Simulated scan of single mutants.
Amino acid sequence: MTETNDIEISSGNVFADLEMSNPEERLVKAELARKISEAIEKRGLTQTQTAQLLGIDQPKVSALIRGKLAGFSTERLLNFLIALGNDVEISIKPKPASRSKAQITVVR
């Protein structure tokens, strides 16, 4: 018996591929959370130290690191990056003609 596997090419946004609501916002928040986790690790901070620095409790730090982002706005995540010693730069430019929709991306 021969099995076939259907392969679907990703759009580049797993949240859109899974047909979740607000996929662009979810992707931005996930990327910001990844940057926050990297900053925490780079500084060698414990979750308790991070909580104190960010002004939140330790369980929220744990949720943030595990990607549970429902209680965090994009603005709040940006402020966490600033509190962790990062400059945040927002750049606005026209989308390329090759893409049908404008998008938000996190780069570094």
Rank of each mutant, 00 (worst) to 15 (best):
M1P: 02
T4D: 05
N5A: 11
N5L: 15
N5Y: 15
I7T: 04
I9A: 15
S11G: 00
G12E: 02
G12L: 00
G12R: 08
A16M: 13
D17A: 06
L18P: 12
L18M: 14
L18G: 00
M20V: 11
S21E: 10
S21T: 14
S21H: 04
N22Y: 13
E25P: 02
L27Y: 07
L27M: 15
L27H: 07
V28M: 07
K29A: 02
E31W: 13
L32H: 00
L32W: 01
A33V: 03
R34P: 00
K35V: 10
I36Q: 02
A39K: 05
L45Y: 02
T46S: 03
T46Q: 02
T46K: 02
Q47N: 04
T48F: 07
L54N: 04
D57N: 06
D57T: 09
Q58L: 03
Q58F: 07
P59C: 01
K60T: 05
V61C: 01
A63G: 01
L64C: 03
R66P: 08
G71E: 08
G71W: 05
F72V: 05
L77G: 01
L78M: 14
N79D: 15
N79W: 03
N79T: 13
F80P: 01
L81M: 06
A83R: 06
N86V: 04
D87H: 09
V88R: 04
I90H: 01
S91V: 13
S91F: 10
I92W: 02
I92V: 03
P96E: 14
A97S: 09
A97V: 05
S98Q: 14
S98A: 09
R99K: 14
S100A: 14
K101G: 12
T105A: 12
V106M: 01
R108C: 11
R108V: 15
